[in-house]
């Protein structure tokens, strides 16, 4: 049967894939998608724990509310982030992170 560890492992793998994507890819849009993936991995962990640690016989809905908030914030973040990417593209004609290395020390 499927145990909590299975879910957590899937979550960890998903997070790792996202992390590798952020490190490896140079396209800011892809990096953004990977970030979303990492956030969702965290959500999966929360929901899994919510189900496996019952309170009064029901899933722990505090965790699910937190997931709800995370999704909301992520949506707002994506909106703002994409606006920034658009602005960046206008300025640099590129969506590569190589175009924004001006902060080099």
């Amino acid at each position: 049967m499927v145990s909590l560890n299975h879910y957590l492992l899937v979550s960890g793998l998903l997070f790792s894939i996202g992390l590798v994507g952020v490190v490896v890819r140079r396209n800011i849009l892809t990096i953004y998608m990977c970030l979303e993936m990492m956030l969702s991995a965290a959500n999966l962990t929360l929901v899994a724990f919510s189900r496996f640690r019952l309170t009064e016989g029901l899933p722990d809905y505090n965790a699910q509310v937190l997931v709800f908030f995370t999704i909301t914030v992520a949506a707002a973040e994506v909106a703002v982030g994409l606006a920034i990417i658009v602005a960046l593209f206008r300025a640099r004609q590129s969506v590569s992170v190589g175009a924004v290395e001006k902060l080099k020390g």
Binding site: I31, V97, E101, K104, G105
Partner: peptide, 8 residues
């Protein structure tokens, strides 16, 4: 040198 400016 730590401040590479590289996001990755």
């Amino acid at each position: 040198r730590v401040q590479t400016g590289s996001l990755q």
